[in-house]
C-alpha cells in the first residue's frame, strides 16, 4: 500500500510496509541527516518536525505522518534555523556531530516558541536530546547566542 508524505515541501509516494518514519526518510528518501541512535525514543537524534512540532521519527509509524507536514534537518536552512546552525558552529556546540541535527531541530523549535529562553527553559526543552560527547555547555551558549543574548 502506498501513502503520500509531505517532506520539506515536496510530495513523495512511498510504501511504508509497517516501517517507522525514520526508516522511510533515511532509506527511501535518502534524507540521511536525521539519525538513528537508539530507536527507543530515548535520545532525540531522530528528531524531525511534524506540523512544526518536534517528534522522534524512530517511534512514529510512517502511516501516522500522512497528511502532516514533515520537515527534516535538510529542510531547515533559513531564518531561525540558520541562526541556530551558525551559533552551533561559532560556539562549537558539536563534537562528533551525530546528535547535532536533532539538537538543531529542537533548538529551532524552542526559539520559535520562546525567543528569549532562560537557562532553565533551555534545559527543560533540550533534555530529550542526548549528546554523548557532552557538548551541552556549548549547546546552551549557542541557543543563547542565537536568541541574541550572548
Amino acid at each position: 500500500m502506498e501513502i503520500t508524505l509531505e517532506v520539506n515541501g515536496r510530495t513523495y509516494s512511498i510504501a511504508p510496509a509497517g516501517r517507522r518514519l525514520l526508516a522511510v526518510l533515511r532509506d527511501d528518501l535518502e534524507l540521511l541527516g536525521t539519525k538513528l541512535a537508539c530507536g527507543e525514543g530515548a535520545c532525540g537524534a531522530c528528531g524531525v518536525l511534524l506540523d512544526g512540532r518536534p517528534v522522534n521519527a524512530c517511534l512514529l509509524f510512517a502511516e501516522a505522518a500522512e497528511g502532516h507536514e514533515i520537515v527534516t534537518i535538510e529542510g531547515l536552512s533559513t531564518g531561525r534555523a540558520a541562526a541556530v546552525q551558525a551559533a552551533f558552529v561559532a560556539e562549537d556546540a558539536l563534537q562528533c556531530g551525530f546528535c547535532t541535527p536533532g539538537q538543531v531541530v529542537s533548538a529551532t523549535v524552542l526559539l520559535e516558541r520562546t525567543p528569549h529562553p532562560t537557562r532553565e527553559e533551555i534545559h527543560e526543552t533540550m533534555a530529550g536530546n542526548l549528546c554523548r560527547c557532552g557538548a551541552y555547555p556549548k549547546i546552551e551558549r549557542a541557543i543563547l547566542r542565537a536568541a541574541g543574548e550572548a
Binding site: 536552512s77 546552525q85 552551533f88 558552529v89 562549537d92 556531530g97 538543531v104
Partner: peptide, 16 residues
C-alpha cells in the same frame, strides 16, 4: 577557531 566542517555538521550534511 570554529571547526572547518562545522557548518556541514550543523546542517546534517556530513556522512557517517
Amino acid at each position: 577557531a570554529p571547526r572547518q566542517d562545522g557548518a556541514a555538521r550543523a546542517a546534517g550534511r556530513v556522512r557517517f
